[in-house]
């Protein structure tokens, strides 16, 4: 298995280079280094000299990919792409264009994102799996029918509606939680209730429906029939046999998103004023801060690759028949 993991990590390198090139191209198609300088220096009274100085100080005075004026390897190394990308591969994100340490900012902003994402994931899983099991239990009845209708309705509503509606009802009408904000420590729990609740409710429709399908697929298999024939109660059949076997697709779907949890959610963080990583990238795009954008995209891609690797490993844990070669 170790050989498999090493091989997968090596496969990740060209993927990350590809992602990096793509980010680079997309960013500089929209923004030129001059645009970035103007955005940073402001709109009024900016001179060409200031723009050139700003670019030189931050290494944006080089050509993008190929420096024809240099000799030898410098033709490739004295370029914006090389100088801004190479250190990413040792996770040295460097400084943002406004001078902040990106690693420090990430380390600060990941915790609020996690504070929302982790309870949302755990409680959401418990709720949706329970509901899906219940629906599976009542399969073919009016409960099943209406549950599916409600799930589809919940899926059809925009997440923005849940957020604005949740803030309006819970924060404004009932006044039981703050409308938005964030705090560290125990006092901060009351700020998490609403975003976590909204996240769970917003995800109930699609997750429950998906898990229901998985359970129904399992419920009709031979081993379930055998278990029933042995006289085991339906409760035990569902929780001991069906749930355990249905966990394989559920678990693999969950594991792949685990590393991405701390990347945060843009809309939730924006509406609730949560200082997480979700808004970090968007703020950077709006400010045309390439250093942050490329760091976050690189990190996102890396974490996704890790997520996929963990998924593969988790297969071997939950299903002993699977072997990684």
């Amino acid at each position: 298995m170790i050989a498999y993991i090493v091989r997968r990590i090596l496969y990740a390198i060209p993927i990350l280079i590809g992602v990096n090139i793509l980010t680079f191209l997309l960013f500089f198609v929209v923004n030129s280094p001059d645009d970035m300088a103007r955005m940073f220096l402001g709109q009024k009274h900016v001179t060409e000299e200031q723009i050139q100085n700003w670019k030189t100080e931050r290494g944006y005075h080089y050509p993008l990919f190929y420096n024809a004026e240099e000799k030898g390897a410098d033709k490739l190394t004295k370029t914006i792409f090389y100088t801004k990308s190479i250190r990413l591969f040792v996770f040295d994100f460097g400084r943002s264009d406004s001078g902040r340490d990106i690693s420090f900012d990430i380390s600060q902003r990941m915790w609020p994102s996690l504070a929302i994402a982790v309870p949302q994931l755990i409680i959401g899983l418990l709720v949706t799996i329970t509901l899906a099991l219940l629906i599976a239990f009542f399969r073919g009845t009016y409960i099943d029918y209406w549950a599916v209708v409600i799930c589809v309705a919940l899926m059809s509503i925009s997440s923005l509606f849940y957020i604005i509606g949740g803030q309006y009802i819970m924060g404004k009408i009932l006044r039981v939680v703050p409308i938005s904000g964030f705090e560290d420590g125990v006092f901060g729990i009351k700020f998490l209730i609403l975003p976590v609740l909204i996240g769970i409710i917003g995800g109930i429709g699609s997750s429950t429906r998906w898990y229901r399908t998985i359970f129904l697929e399992e419920i009709n298999k031979d081993y379930v029939r055998t278990a029933r024939a042995k006289g085991i109660s339906e409760q035990l059949v569902l929780f001991r046999h069906v749930l355990r076997n249905a966990l394989i697709p559920i678990l693999t779907g969950v594991v792949v998103i685990l590393p991405l949890l701390f990347m945060g959610s843009l809309i939730t963080e924006s509406f609730f004023g949560i200082p997480g990583l979700g808004s970090y990238t968007i703020d950077a795009i709006n400010r045309q801060d390439f250093s942050i954008v490329r760091s976050m995209v690189f990190l996102g891609a890396f974490l996704y690759i890790i997520g996929l690797l963990l998924t593969d490993i988790s297969y071997t844990i939950v299903d002993p028949r699977v072997r990684l070669n």
Binding site: I164, Q167, Y168, G171, K172, R175, I179, S180, G181, S270, F271, F272, G273, P275, S279
Partner: peptide
Amino acid sequence: YSLEKESIPYWNKFLQ
């Protein structure tokens, strides 16, 4: 000064 990115929560908190 609190970070408030969206106008709707800001307005509701002003009314509160």
